[in-house]
Amino acid sequence: MKITHYLYNAFLIESGDKKLAVDPGGLMFYYFRFSPLIPKSEWNNVTHIFVTHGDPDHYWHADRMAAVSKAPVICNKTMVQEIDGKYLLLGPRDKGVAFTTEFKNHHKLSVDETIEVDGVTITGIKTTHGPLTVKLGPFSKTLNPGRDERIGWGAIGFKIQLDGKTLVNLGDTLLHKDEWESIDSPDVLMIPIGGNAVHNTMDIPEALQAIRIMKPKLVIPCHYNCPAFFSKNFNHADEDEFRNELEAMDIQYAILHKGDSIHV
């Protein structure tokens, strides 16, 4: 199995005839760019598309990838509404909470629900997106997830079982100690660590708590030191600090930068 990371929470997971794309979003307004995180050259052979929530850096290109690949989209049931007899998903590039986009093939699930999609078993995991504070010079604005707010809409994590391996991807989330105790020793855990300054996800100490609970065989940190707005290191986190803590815990890890891969 090959896992490739493309910044934020964008991953490709390849095993046999399966090619799973997680969060095919775009650059987060980086100098007004919304370029795809997962290269278009990879889209054609994607077999499954996972969406952890509706923020632009996770979801911006989901419909475009689906149109090219014809792959099913797996997401939280809150990402879908039935309107005038059609099942419409949250519009990837619409403002606010607008259900405007018809995906030809989608599968929705809830937390703790398990479904099987074309040979891949998927269980929904409880996650909660934290508030996002954006600073531009002396000005700052905090976006809080809520009933009518786009930020963090549809947040859910995934436990993915494929070819005898269990992978966990949490998307953007705060810590959930009690809800994650049932996740036991996954082969791979993809976990955000960049919440120290921005607070929309766990920071390093909180991620380490989650790792102690789940006891994964391999950890891949994500959603930190990302290009966003006018910064090259939005969601800053200290890789060396995280690496040292994992080594002290005797946990295997892979620090993957843009386009880096690991075989597991």
Rank of each mutant, 00 (worst) to 15 (best):
L167W: 03
V168A: 10
V168Q: 04
N169L: 13
L170Y: 04
G171W: 13
G171D: 07
D172A: 15
D172K: 07
D172T: 13
D172F: 05
D172N: 14
T173Q: 10
T173G: 07
T173M: 10
T173P: 09
L174D: 02
K177I: 06
D178V: 08
E179N: 05
E179G: 04
E181C: 03
E181I: 07
E181G: 10
S182V: 11
S182L: 06
I183S: 09
I183D: 04
D184C: 10
D184E: 13
P186F: 04
D187K: 08
D187N: 15
V188R: 08
V188G: 08
V188F: 03
L189A: 04
M190W: 02
M190N: 09
M190E: 05
I191P: 08
I191Q: 06
P192S: 07
P192H: 11
I193A: 00
I193G: 09
I193C: 09
G194L: 12
N196F: 15
N196G: 15
N196L: 15
A197I: 02
A197G: 08
V198Q: 12
H199P: 05
H199N: 14
H199L: 11
H199R: 15
N200T: 06
T201L: 04
T201W: 02
T201A: 14
M202L: 05
D203H: 07
I204E: 06
I204C: 02
I204L: 04
P205L: 07
P205H: 10
P205T: 01
A207P: 05
L208D: 08
A210R: 08
A210T: 08
A210Y: 02
I211G: 03
I211K: 02
R212D: 15
R212C: 04
R212L: 07
I213W: 06
K215R: 14
P216M: 02
K217A: 12
I220K: 11
P221W: 09
P221G: 12
H223R: 14
Y224W: 12
Y224K: 13
N225H: 13
N225Y: 12
N225F: 09
N225G: 12
N225A: 13
P227V: 14
P227Q: 10
F229C: 11
F230A: 13
F230K: 15
S231N: 14
S231M: 14
K232G: 05
K232W: 15
K232L: 15
F234T: 14
N235Y: 15
N235D: 10
N235A: 15
H236K: 14
A237H: 07
A237D: 02
A237M: 09
A237K: 02
D238P: 02
D238S: 06
D238R: 00
E239C: 00
E239Q: 02
E239N: 03
E239R: 06
D240G: 00
E241I: 03
F242H: 05
R243S: 06
N244A: 03
E245R: 08
M249R: 12
M249Q: 11
M249D: 07
D250A: 11
I251Q: 09
Q252S: 15
Q252P: 04
Y253D: 00
Y253M: 05
I255T: 00
I255M: 14
L256V: 08
L256N: 10
G259N: 05
G259R: 02
D260K: 08
S261R: 05
I262D: 00
I262K: 01
